[in-house]
Design a protein around this nucleic acid. Structure first.
Length: 588
RNA sequence: GGGGCUGUAGCUCAGCUGGUUAGAGUGCCGGUCUGUCACACCGGAGGUCGCGGGUUCGAGCCCCGUCAGCCCCGCCA
């Protein structure tokens, strides 16, 4: 199927079976080796690289053209596929058993010297990320980048197939939509027809997919582009892709089952065998044992509460922190007494400080010797009570959980990295369940929703609502893989009374509810089936399965951390005439 | 919004305690070469040391500011 009117094969497809055939190829000059009497041209296309050998027997014009080829020029070649003699085979090349002896060679797309190299020497560093983004068409020629995009394509198709087989319907929802009252900042699009009014790009198709359930479509999915105007990270882009799904007449088990089916299929597509059901961990346990709601469960190392054991020892570092009913928690690092150097520990303490904590205390036990920043307060017995044996180390943080959890999470990850700890599993999927429904606003202490305001409260916790809303759990689920959050979802509120109760808890008046969420309330009033759904962060999945270091390596045209597109130069100033038409004045 | 790292030849990097003419590899240009595959060998060109200001007899190096890229915190219902 690679045949077109201008070629018979792709370069990288040629094998021994093609020997003797006349072929026509098109591709880019990857490298050229001119030995004088014979010129070798490595010709590259999407499928790979094949060697074209232009020897003394080749026609004069072919030899002349071959002698003058520059890198990255596009040529078309016609010639015979020839088996290479044994000692001239190249086992590092998929096409290495053959080469092409051309009778015609035509330059069809002359290239100037590329700004960044496509063909790199072994071990040569990549060009800077800035240049790779600026000259993206060249960066994307690299086989590694093409492999990432090929994988991305296959994963997309597999997701579509899997959900289609589960009787989900792929339905598109608007890109020009309504600004969201809460949540992330919206990207706004001014309306020309309605002065002073704006569309927003969707942060997710959340409300649309719920309305599709109200409409009776039963099962929906979409490979949905989402937009959030927030600051970027290595694993966060301002526009990103979700595998978004929603289903009717479902409970939590159904939703989790659908998501497991999709993820197992995606991992299978990438050649990784995994199986559901994924283990579950409560949010509370995840925070307690790992200090994060997305724990990397490939490693057993876990946080322990040492408050009762350490409290009576009179350590000033801890006593200062313990005044406000806080806790002492830490990590018992088996063998850490020997393997964690003083430098390691100091750097871990520095990391802890940067996260806003008071720092990290540590104790090492090596034979009779007990050392460390708080070592003099401990004996072998007191350490033994913490599970610190001979040759072990304890890394200890004290304070309120909101400080110690992120610190110990980070320290745990660093310890695992520095010790080169052996994982107990290659693929550690897990569901994080029983998230809180509300969380306190850090400034006012009033309830704000932990997810979105349509997440159903856990039915068992409804009686709690009146007196202790923060104790209420939500029917909300995160799927976590090797310390990465892959997605989240929930059962939605379909009871009008519950929905109003939640909005009231958040401090919204009936007027505000009607104004902001009127169309959803209308939906709930018009016969809403029980429904729930999920969204999988697709870019992140591709990144992990491709083994890529950054989201930018699995997106064809990504943005920089300053949300700029270096290739096309977006954003850019608008023409004054366009601004006038949009009724917009820009203040400098 | 805050913190950190980086910015020197087309590309990747070195550049000592501030010292005279800023280097290497690769790419590029020219030449030799009939079995290379990172071809080899010979020769050559190539620099706004991100930008602006300051300190100094003298700045790639020190100071201040600024821009860009990357990483982190805040933020991301």
């Amino acid at each position: 199927m690679s045949r077109t009117s201008r070629r018979t094969h792709r370069c990288g497809e040629l094998r021994v079976q093609h020997v003797g055939q006349r072929v026509r190829l098109g591709g880019w000059v990857h490298r050229r080796r001119d030995l004088g009497g014979i010129v070798f041209v490595d010709l590259r296309d999407r499928a790979g690289i094949v060697q074209v050998a232009v020897g003394p027997a080749a026609p004069e014009d072919v030899r002349r053209t071959a002698g003058g080829l520059t890198g990255e020029t596009v040529v078309e070649v016609e010639g015979e596929v020839v088996a290479r003699p044994g000692n001239m085979k190249n086992p590092e090349l998929a096409t290495g058993d053959v080469e092409v002896h051309p009778s015609k060679l035509t330059v069809v797309g002359l290239a100037v010297t590329p700004a960044i190299p496509v063909a790199r020497a072994k071990g040569e560093e990549l060009p800077s990320e800035e240049l790779r983004l600026k000259h993206r068409h060249l960066d994307l020629r690299r086989p590694e980048m093409q492999a990432n995009l090929v994988l991305r394509h296959r994963l997309l198709q597999r997701a579509r197939r899997t959900l289609t087989e589960l009787e989900f319907l792929e339905i598109e929802t608007p890109i020009l939509t309504k600004p969201t009252p809460e949540g992330a900042r919206d990207y706004l699009v001014p309306s020309r027809v309605h002065p002073g009014e704006f569309y927003a790009l969707p942060q997710s198709p959340q409300i649309y997919k719920q309305l599709l359930m109200v409409a009776g479509l039963d099962r929906y999915f979409q490979i949905a582009r989402c937009f959030r105007d927030e600051d970027l990270r290595n694993d966060r882009q301002p526009e990103f892709t979700q595998i978004d799904l929603e289903a009717s007449f479902v409970g939590p088990e159904d939703v989790l089952g659908f998501v497991e089916a999709v993820l197992v299929a995606l991992w299978d597509e990438a050649g990784q065998q995994v199986a559901g059901p994924f283990p579950r961990i409560t949010w509370r346990e995840a925070m307690e044992r790992y200090g994060t709601d997305k724990p990397d469960l490939r490693y057993e190392l876990a946080i322990t509460d040492w408050t009762t054991q350490v409290g009576p020892l009179g350590v000033p570092f801890f006593d200062a922190a313990l005044k406000n009913g806080a806790r002492v928690r830490g990590l018992a690092v088996k063998g850490g007494g020997g393997t964690l150097s003083r430098k390691d520990v100091d750097q871990l303490a520095e990391t802890a400080k940067q996260l806003g904590g008071s720092g990290l205390a540590w104790v090492k036990r090596q034979g009779e010797q007990i050392s460390g920043s708080v070592g003099k307060y401990f004996t072998a017995d007191t350490l033994g009570a913490l599970g610190i044996g001979d040759g072990d180390a304890a890394l200890i943080a004290a304070g309120p959980d909101r400080v110690t959890s992120p610190v110990l999470d980070r320290v745990r990850q660093e310890v695992i990295r520095r010790l080169g700890a052996q994982p107990t599993a290659t693929h550690a999927f897990a569901w994080v369940v029983d998230f809180p429904l509300f969380e306190p606003d850090p400034e006012t202490g009033k309830p704000v929703f932990a997810h979105h305001p349509f997440t159903a409260p856990h039915p068992d916790d409804l009686p709690l609502g009146r007196k202790s809303p923060f104790e209420m759990r939500a029917l909300h689920y995160d799927v976590v893989y090797n310390g990465n959050e892959l997605g989240s979802g929930s059962i939605r509120i379909t009871d009008r009374q519950v929905q109003y109760w939640v909005f009231h808890q958040l401090g919204l008046s009936d007027d505000e509810i009607a104004k902001r969420f009127g169309f959803l309330i209308d939906g709930l009033n018009s016969g809403a089936p029980p429904h729930g759904g999920f969204a999988i962060g697709f870019d992140r999945v591709v990144m992990l399965l491709a083994g890529a270091a950054s989201l930018r390596d699995v997106i064809a045209f990504p943005k920089t951390t300053a949300a700029r597109a270096l290739f096309e130069g977006a954003p850019a100033p608008a023409h004054p005439a366009d601004l006038r038409a949009l009724h917009i004045k820009v203040e400098p």
